[in-house]
Write a protein that binds this DNA or RNA. Structure first.
Lengths: 193, 193
DNA sequence: CTCATCATGTAAGGAGTTACATGATTGG
DNA sequence: CCAATCATGTAACTCCTTACATGATGAG
């Protein structure tokens, strides 16, 4: 159910097509909420049916068409309502820690492969999030710049501060996961002796 | 797809019924992989069809029946294969950080409610995981004791070490989330001035 | 003219959630 | 005899994944 709020968060800056949104998902919001195109297009249609957004068909060249969506008043209200409402947390379902808990059943080599994989996974995320953080600090994220353009100057600091806060949290999480897996590698070494 | 490996991890210690497994899910494995009964019973049936486990119908009292499942050779192999295979990581989909990133759209009170909720959420998890850790150190977790009983003495240290490692990681993660949300509360205070 | 990019989907299936549904047994 | 717990499910629905499918436009 969060997908539509991720989409609304982007659309509140200004009208975008499904394709544009999809591109943004591999950048800005996509860093906290991934969604493939096959999920975005149908969700936009549903949101339009629910009256949260409205699509306008634009011609592109001679026969090309694109639907550009903008947020309706109802959509804006729905977004703000979500923002004021309690978040529902998913129950824990963590494949990496599930495996870690029974790692005695794996060979030391497999255990090391798993832990190295975990490090690689989170180093990838870390790089993404640190990159985002750099773009936030330098005001070089195009979506953030567009957002600031439609935001009263008095709210610029807030807007930037919460983005920085978010990505700092993610960076810390990634570092935590990496440190944990390194500990695990040491443990596997110790146990082998 | 991890559910069946969580179930196999438990069943490898000894035969259990769907009901027993369901109970264990709210304790041992459930701390890293939640599953409701409505998901466990059908999954066990599917695993039996796939030949990973075998169920034996036992009578309970006069008319009561219960199916007690045990792992087959194929099930054991499947589990060990999974243990040696690379883990597939889910794409990031994080409602808390999604909201945090756009917290400028919320009122300061709502922002505080959200952050306090986040702290409460992770303090709950922290308590669970710290409790588990205590039970591991004290060897007072019944499932762990049963596991050690069917494990060669030479592997006891390994078995315990990986459990401790897992829950230490989870405890650290929870602490990280709590620290992050506390930072957020400070930020909301600072921005209000 | 061709290729990258723009642009929008459908279809099948797996995984998980919530709610509903039923009945047996055991201990007090 | 009554309540807690034992015991096992189904049904409908949402969300997400993977794979498939198609065609237009613009730059070189």
């Amino acid at each position: 159910m969060s997908l539509r709020y991720a989409l609304l968060a982007l659309l509140r800056v200004g009208p975008l097509s499904g394709y544009d949104l999809q591109k943004q998902f591999s950048q800005s919001v996509g860093h906290v909420w991934h969604a493939p195109d096959s999920q975005i297009y149908p969700e936009l249609r549903k949101m339009e049916l629910d009256g949260l957004i409205e699509g306008e068909e634009q011609t592109r060249g001679l026969r090309g068409v694109r639907r550009v969506y903008h947020v309706t008043d109802a959509g804006n209200r729905s977004y703000l309502d979500w923002m004021e409402s309690p978040l529902d947390y998913q129950r824990v379902r963590d494949p990496a820690h599930l495996r870690a808990a029974y790692l005695e059943a794996a060979s030391p080599e497999a255990a090391r492969r798993f832990l190295r994989g975990h490090i690689a996974q989170w180093e990838g995320e870390l790089e993404q999030w640190q990159g985002e953080l750099t773009h936030i600090e330098a005001l070089s994220n195009p979506m953030l710049v567009r957002r600031l353009e439609v935001t009263p100057a008095a709210d610029h600091a807030r807007t930037i501060a919460f983005k920085r806060f978010t990505y700092e949290g993610l960076v810390e999480r990634a570092r935590g996961e990496i440190a944990w897996a390194r500990q695990g590698l040491k443990l596997v070494d110790d146990l082998e002796r």
